[in-house]
């Protein structure tokens, strides 16, 4: 399932962070992507919610420290 999630969020990251060279990695953090900031994070979260048809709560969003956390949270929410 995580492979499917990865396939679906990678193009979202390319689009939102305006960088097609971003290589997916579970260790990836906002710090390492130039255009991942407060504004793009709001857009990114909204795009993920639309793609997977659910809503994050603020505690879930705060707990996302890297892309790996995001994958695991999505997995929990879509089962």
């Amino acid at each position: 399932m995580s492979e499917d999630i990865k396939q679906r969020i990678t193009p979202i990251m390319h689009l939102v962070f305006e960088d097609k060279t971003i290589v997916f990695s579970e260790e990836l953090t906002a710090h390492r992507i130039e255009k991942w900031n407060s504004v793009s994070n709001i857009i990114f979260i909204a795009a993920i919610e639309k793609e997977f048809n659910f809503k994050f709560n603020i505690m879930e969003i705060m707990s996302l420290k890297n892309v790996g956390d995001l994958i695991r949270t999505i997995q929990k929410k879509i089962v």
């Binding site: 953090t29 906002a30 710090h31 900031n37 407060s38 994070n41 969003i61 420290k65």
Partner: peptide, 11 residues
């Protein structure tokens, strides 16, 4: 300062 500021502030 390294993370997403509004989330770091709330945390």
């Amino acid at each position: 300062q390294a993370g997403i500021m509004y989330l770091e502030v709330l945390e």
